[in-house]
């Protein structure tokens, strides 16, 4: 308990991180501060630099420039001390061993591990402790891999696309397990390309595109950052041309009687719309969802980069 209090004084500090592989600039200067106890999602399209960033965070790769500090130490020191643990994107389990033995074996590598029985209980694996690792389902395997990370009793856990191979039900169960663990105050960073996963499970989202942070904030912040809102309504005989002239309209879509306007000034649009189309009904005004924010923010960077390249 005292131990975790000391460590909670410092979080994770990433400064000016860059990493290239030949001509590929995977990470182009990332700064990030993660406070103790936060659950942070690293989100980005393929090739955005998520996995490289995670490798750098864990010391599995050496940065070309920049520093990573985990609770005041370089990654290698934090790993040796058992303060960081991770579930990597790819990886299976060794065979000829039972789930319980494997968790025991990994626990034995640490100076102050979690009780293996507790790690099994937290991950819902107590009933599978006697099962050999080659007899597990995909979801069970991921839970064992998570148990192997938390049995280190770390202050900081990194999960790289932990649910990528799981079906919907297994994903849901897996996240329920992770949330139980997060409630204990452990700092969690996870990479994902499922937007709903980030939305539902993260306190904060760091959006990467093209090796840079393009947005960093709570889910609400990021959605608000995209100043576009959507107005939906029903209007018999609506045609696209009827709405293009309204103030603040960016984009119009009509599907039969159902109309969808994307607006950069939804209030003005709505006032004008009600006046111009008294027959319109079933109004619904909505902020951008995470997917729209994601598309817009990552697309902006791509444009900017292309311009830069020219």
């Amino acid at each position: 308990m005292t131990d975790s209090t000391i460590h909670s004084a410092a979080g994770i500090e990433v400064r000016g991180l860059t990493k290239s592989f030949g001509d590929v600039h995977a990470v182009r200067g990332i700064d990030l501060t993660i406070r103790p106890g936060e659950t942070v999602a690293i989100l980005g399209p393929n090739g955005a630099g998520k996995s490289t960033t995670i490798d750098l965070l864990l010391g599995l790769a050496t940065p070309d420039a920049g520093t990573v500090s985990i609770l005041g130490d370089p990654p290698a020191v934090a790993v040796k001390a058992g303060r960081v643990a991770a579930m990597l994107q790819t990886g299976g389990l060794i065979r000829e061993i039972t789930v319980g033995e494997l968790v025991d074996m990994v626990a034995s590598l640490y100076a102050a591990p979690m009780d293996p029985g507790e790690a099994l209980a937290l991950t819902g694996l107590s009933d599978l402790a006697g099962r050999r690792t080659d007899g597990l389902s995909g979801g069970e395997t991921q839970r064992v891999r998570f148990a192997l990370a938390i049995v280190a009793n770390p202050s900081f856990v990194v999960l790289d696309e932990p649910t990528v191979a799981l079906d919907v039900e297994a994903r849901r169960e897996f996240w329920a397990t992770i949330r139980t663990f997060a409630d204990r105050g452990t700092t969690i960073v996870f990479a994902t390309h499922y937007l709903d996963e980030a939305d539902a499970n993260a306190d904060r989202i760091v959006l990467l595109a093209d090796g840079r942070v393009v947005a960093d904030g709570s889910v609400t912040d990021i959605k608000a950052h995209v100043g576009v809102r959507t107005i939906r309504f029903t209007l018999a005989g609506a045609a696209t041309g009827d709405f293009a002239g309204l103030p603040g309209v960016v984009d119009v879509e009509c599907h039969g009687d159902s109309v969808r306007l994307r607006c950069d000034d939804a209030d003005s649009t709505l006032r004008a719309l009600v006046a111009a189309q008294p027959e319109a009904r079933d109004f619904e005004v909505r902020g951008a969802d995470l997917e729209e924010a994601f598309v817009q923010l990552t697309a902006d960077t791509t444009d900017a980069t292309e311009e830069f390249a020219r």
């Binding site: 599995l60 790993v79 040796k80 058992g82 960081v84 643990a85 990994v106 192997l148 280190a152």
Partner: peptide, 8 residues
């Protein structure tokens, strides 16, 4: 790779 993330 997993073992490299332990003190082993």
């Amino acid at each position: 790779r997993q073992l490299r993330l332990t003190p082993l």
